[in-house]
């Protein structure tokens, strides 16, 4: 009898587990039909991969920025045009991308457990806690933020099909894309997401993201899509920002390392680094 009850209880646990969706595999960034090859070799609607995947990066995103933050974007673009990194400086020196930029690149892996849904993105991990917890009184700020979610059975068939998540608790600066399209420097961003598998094409997962941020004139909602890699054993490539990077940040200046290892300016007339600390040591 006890054995049978254990089997029942184990079976109930398994049955409960079976309510969660199957989102296994590698999910790559969706690319629109009309696309171009960016200078980095990636297919995009224009420029580097973008937050709104249907539109080119930077100004092409038509982000509803305040006048103040539209200027931040324009200054960033101008700086990049002259060889600098603009508002994307921290990404260029391999700081974490954080939200929302971390959701731009693939492959993503979703690992669903009853307590947590993990989104594994190259070197970064998002945890969306679905164990019913409340928001902590204090959140240690991070680039990925702190995410709480809940599963919803929208069609009432006894299976969860939508994950709703809210993310808060950020540090920065963070950007939407490599143009330096900015989020507010106050880091008060809130992200609300609805993640679900496409009902007509199961090869697609949607992540409807609504950004609430003081750099915006209104909440900005975008439907990000990811396409399942059909390879049974996806290539979880080890992608390291720092490896092969020829950029060196010294203070607030970014320089370039030549192939021979020597330092060179990234911008016209860029001053060399201050060597005051070498005065007593140079021969």
């Amino acid at each position: 009898m006890i054995g049978a009850l254990m089997v029942i209880c184990g079976g109930v646990k398994a049955a409960e587990r079976a309510k969660y969706p199957e989102w296994k595999g590698a999910w790559e960034r969706w690319i629109p039909q009309v696309s171009v090859v960016s200078p980095s070799g990636l297919r995009t609607p224009g420029g580097q991969p973008s937050f709104d995947q249907t539109k080119p990066w930077a100004r092409g995103q038509e982000a509803p920025l305040t006048a103040e933050y539209q200027k931040v974007l324009e200054d960033s673009i101008a700086d990049q045009a002259s060889g600098g990194q603009g508002n994307n400086f921290d990404r260029a020196r391999c700081m974490p991308t954080g939200m929302p930029h971390m959701m731009t690149f693939g492959p993503l892996e979703f690992v669903v457990t009853p307590e947590t849904t993990y989104i594994l993105i190259r070197t970064q991990v998002r945890r969306i806690f679905t164990d019913g917890r409340d928001w902590p009184k204090e959140i240690e700020p991070s680039y990925a933020g702190y995410s709480i979610g809940r599963w919803i059975d929208e069609d009432g068939d006894g299976h969860y099909d939508v994950l709703e998540a809210e993310t808060r608790g950020f540090k920065g600066p963070r950007v939407y894309d490599a143009s330096g399209l900015p989020l507010h420097f106050d880091n008060q961003s809130i992200f609300k997401e609805r993640i679900y598998r496409d009902k007509t094409d199961p090869r697609i997962i949607h992540d409807e993201v609504t950004v609430i941020d003081h750099a915006l004139t209104r909440p900005w909602t975008v439907d990000k899509r990811y396409v399942r890699d059909s390879n049974r054993h996806p290539d979880w490539r080890e992608s390291s920002c720092i490896e092969g990077s020829d950029l060196v940040a010294i203070g607030k200046e970014m320089y370039i390392l030549r192939a021979d290892g020597l330092l060179m300016p990234a911008k016209k007339d860029q001053p060399p680094p201050d060597l005051r600390y070498f005065k007593h040591d140079t021969k």
């Binding site: 020597l262 300016p265 680094p273």
Partner: peptide, 24 residues
């Protein structure tokens, strides 16, 4: 303050031959 310093005693500064302007 973000300025470059030697890591070792007697270490020479980096070669800045590709910069047009003299170091400050």
């Amino acid at each position: 303050e973000g300025m470059i310093m030697p890591a070792k005693k007697g270490q020479r500064p980096p070669d800045l031959r590709y910069f047009n302007q003299p170091p400050k």
